[in-house]
């Protein structure tokens, strides 16, 4: 088996979600190669070559790939992909944009957001917003997959010494054109896709006190969430509601502050990788799902936490 992993990057640095996808590739087993497609992205190729377990890096350097538009990239990957048993990408917005297109060009299915590799053709993936887990077997010769990064540990970024091989870019007519990008730099990340989420509940007591959550989130570069009780009580806006009727999140770190953990809330965050709960009530249900629980008065614990971060 030979596996091609599509690197996620911004032409300057390899995005760490690629390392999670490589872990999934390792679980499948076989020779692992990485494709770095971009423009002026030699540095990324070198980083990819240094990753443990990568046997070869393919570098496609062309202005056509600068913004990682799906149309030219999918043609490139579909052409290269015919020689592999598996083509993987992180289930980022970029991977999700690209990989179904690759699969269609190869006339195979694409299996989205895998969270476990059971064998080289059988995978688990969440369905119904994580309320059920499907075990799916691919019947196609080439398996095109996207990988949920929080479900796989990152492989070591160093220790490898793969060769970098240039591949020729295919020319494609420009029917989609990049106009602009506005990446949030200082603003808080989007609640649905943030790596860290800090959520506040009714324990905050007031809209004024809810500012504490915002300060902690800024300290961590986190998105701000809230329980429905906090939203209903008017402490914060309802687009911050995490839960069954709000946003469903699965960040790497979820900090629940002053949230009791009603099941409606748990339904929206229980897929998070690490859950931390700070609550003064030791009986609060949130502690039943928290990896780390701190029974404390949040008005003391949160300022202390900010000092220590």
């Amino acid at each position: 088996m030979s596996i091609l992993v599509i690197a996620e990057h911004d032409n300057r640095a390899l995005n760490s979600v690629t390392l999670n996808a490589l872990q999934a590739a390792k679980a499948i087993g076989g020779e692992i190669q990485v494709l770095v497609a971009g423009h002026h992205c030699q540095a990324v190729a070198e980083q990819a070559a240094a990753v443990a377990g990568v046997s070869k890096v393919l570098l496609a350097d062309s202005p056509a790939y600068e913004h990682r538009l799906a149309e030219p990239l999918s043609k490139l990957i579909a052409t290269l992909g015919k020689d592999y048993s598996h083509v993987l990408a992180p289930a980022s917005t970029s991977g999700k944009n690209l990989m179904p297109r690759v699969a269609a060009l190869l006339d195979v299915a694409q299996i989205s957001d895998i969270t476990a590799v059971l064998s080289s053709d059988t995978f688990q993936r969440p369905i119904y917003a994580g309320n059920a887990v499907a075990t799916v077997q691919s019947l196609d010769a080439i398996k095109v997959l996207t990988v949920r990064s929080t479900a796989f540990e990152a492989v070591a970024a160093s220790g490898g010494a793969a060769a970098v091989e240039a591949v020729t870019a295919s020319a494609v007519p420009e029917r989609s054109r990049f106009v602009s990008e506005a990446l949030a730099v200082s603003d808080r990340p989007n609640l649905g896709s943030a790596k860290v989420v800090v959520s506040g509940g009714r324990g905050l007591g007031s809209a004024e006190n809810f500012a504490l959550i915002e300060q902690l989130a800024d300290k961590l570069g986190a998105a701000v969430g809230a329980s429905r009780a906090a939203v209903d009580a008017g402490f914060t806006a309802n687009d911050r509601q995490v839960g069954q009727t709000g946003t469903i999140v699965a960040p790497e770190l979820y900090l629940a502050v002053g949230i009791s953990g009603a099941i409606q809330h748990l339904a929206g965050m229980k897929e998070s990788k690490i859950i931390v709960a700070i609550n003064k009530d030791p009986e609060a249900p949130i502690f039943q799902v928290a990896d780390y629980g701190l029974v404390a008065d949040l008005f003391e614990a949160v300022p202390e936490l900010m000092r220590q971060l």
Binding site: I127, A134, K270, F287, A290, Y292, G293, L294, L305
Partner: peptide, 29 residues
């Protein structure tokens, strides 16, 4: 192109540990 082998309920999350201070929490994280 694919076969649905089975569908399961997600694993119940288990309770982790309680830490006794903010310092211990930061250390664990």
């Amino acid at each position: 192109h694919t076969r649905l082998i089975k569908v399961e309920a997600p694993a119940e999350r288990q309770a982790g540990i309680k830490v006794d201070s903010v310092e211990a929490l930061v250390d664990k994280l």
